[in-house]
Design a binder for these strands. Structure first.
Lengths: 300, 300
DNA sequence: ATGTGCACATAGGCTGTCCCTATGCCTCTG
DNA sequence: CAGAGGCATAGGGACAGCCTATGTGCACAT
């Protein structure tokens, strides 16, 4: 999907949410550090783009119409994910002193960490965090070398010298475009899946290793080479959606596409594609301070 | 939260995703209908805002760095919700001929319909839809009067003259700010909850009716008046987060806040707060055409 | 009744952002 | 060695967005 369109500017939607909260355009403007006329005009043009009246304006304030409540609800979802993105970005910048250094695999960092970071900020607002992403081996090295206070990995084995706790689970899924022959049957044998060239990540990646590992555990040693190797999950998804071929990806990655029917999930018979996501720290040295807080948040 | 900040402009992130998919800044620019220098500059300023190098530029194209993959992953989540918002907005505008008229309660319209609409678009792209939101009684009227082809309601009883199918479930939850006394125990008796003034919707709302209905079903007839009545879910959430008092809301509404620890869920003993969400249509007249497609999508 | 306060709308002017065309530099390939 | 493909830089122009000042309407208090 190359282009979204009228939803690109989140500021106006955020302003709409503030109006809903505060009950008046003027107060919402104040909360956003802008003048009342600016807010008024912004909301007016927003209504123009949406094509529906969102606010009921009275001399005593402004309230959402029914359509406005719908739009506000949808916008709140977008803004919540934007807050995740912002939290993630904050933890990526290394420009301030770090009190909490996190090393995480891509899957954990993408799907779980942002919410944890927001939760951590609500318990201890002043904790600056630095996030480093890498594969599981890299994470283990960082933790062992005391370059990270807490690590998150997705390997089945816990590297030597580390203690761990399972914090979540992940699952690899095989997906195809809706037009693909496998999309109708929704099931293939492991042997057949292994014999079919896939769109896949590069050899070193955790996802690819996990796939090969799972096939090996099911007794399948022969497997076809990749149909196409790409370095980013996004590119692989786009290739699969475009019908280039089947792909294996993390369930989290494709959940939205499966729900929207742009990709179809295909069961792979008799192969265990689950894997645990674990927090790790140096054996015998339990996390303290903010690292302990984060661990508590991650384990619910 | 009045202000998000550096994530307000989704265009740049969308552009980043396109670079990941297409492997080059120039092609991404083309996909977005802009010139290559514009895209180049946009991405450069994006990197400036993020504070981290996101792209590895080579004379053969551009690839995401590790940090870039993380940011792209988070951004994809935001854009997926933005696509939901856009789909919802499209269905709200009544400016084109409608082939499929939907009437839905707010809860269904907010949390389930956008994904269904996107799925519907992938199966039958040319179906124009019109969405009307209202309470369950209103939805029933629309369907019975043949002003809507398909309705979605959240009441426990199916109105006379309508056939129905359960498509999902909802749950009311009691939430308080983390500093509230109930936040520690995480459980209150139904009697106590009923005796406590709550931040709540206006009397006619489905959520408020469902709450009172559930208390009555548990044998509790006495209940305190509301602490504060507000017309929008957003305002109620803000009041609860601000510590004004406990609030009762749909689980979907507060899931993100509970995950982020800005609100704490409190169990209410011995009260059944579940309710089914149902698709409805005129009895004896099964949905056909796009309405049947949508029903199939909604029921998985 | 009438004045005052609060809220939203309109007008006019300015600043800044964003985009486009043209051009240059680099690397790989034939 | 030349050409193609890719990204960066320079300069100029258009439009969007914001601010201050002012106008209008309603409710409540005096």
């Amino acid at each position: 999907m190359p282009l979204p369109s009228r939803v690109a500017d989140l500021t106006s939607f955020d302003l709409l949410l503030s109006v809903a909260e505060l009950g008046s355009i003027g107060r919402a403007a104040q909360a956003h550090g802008m003048s009342q006329p600016s807010a008024s005009e912004r909301l007016r043009t927003l209504e123009g783009r949406v094509g529906v009246t969102l606010l009921e304006r009275t001399p005593h304030g402004a309230r959402l119409t029914t359509a406005g409540q719908l739009v506000a609800g949808w916008a709140a979802q977008v803004l919540a994910r934007a807050a995740d993105l912002d939290a993630g970005i904050t933890s990526l910048r290394a420009d301030r002193q770090s009190h909490l250094r996190i090393a995480a695999s891509l899957t954990v960092a993408e799907y779980l960490l942002p919410a944890w970071l927001i939760a951590l900020r609500s318990t201890s607002p002043d904790t600056a965090t630095v996030l480093t992403a890498g594969n599981s081996v890299h994470v283990a090295e960082q933790v062992l070398a005391d370059k990270a206070d807490l690590g998150f990995i997705e390997s089945t084995d816990v590297p030597a010298g580390l203690a761990s706790r399972v914090v979540a689970h992940d699952e690899l899924v095989l997906v195809v475009a809706p037009g693909h022959p496998w999309a109708r049957r929704r099931r293939v044998t492991a042997t057949r899946a292994a014999a079919t060239p896939l769109v896949s990540r590069e050899p070193g990646s955790g996802t690819r290793q996990a796939w090969e590992h799972a096939l090996a555990a099911a007794g399948i040693t022969e497997s076809a080479g990749p149909l196409l190797e790409m370095s980013s999950t996004t590119a692989i998804k786009a290739a699969a959606i475009g019908g280039i071929g089947p792909a294996v990806l993390s369930l989290h990655t494709v959940a939205a596409d499966v729900a929207a029917r742009t990709l179809v999930r295909v069961q792979v018979g008799d192969v265990d594609l689950h894997r645990a996501l674990r927090a790790v720290w140096p054996a015998g040295r339990a996390p303290r301070g903010p690292a302990a807080d984060l661990l508590a948040i991650a384990t619910r």
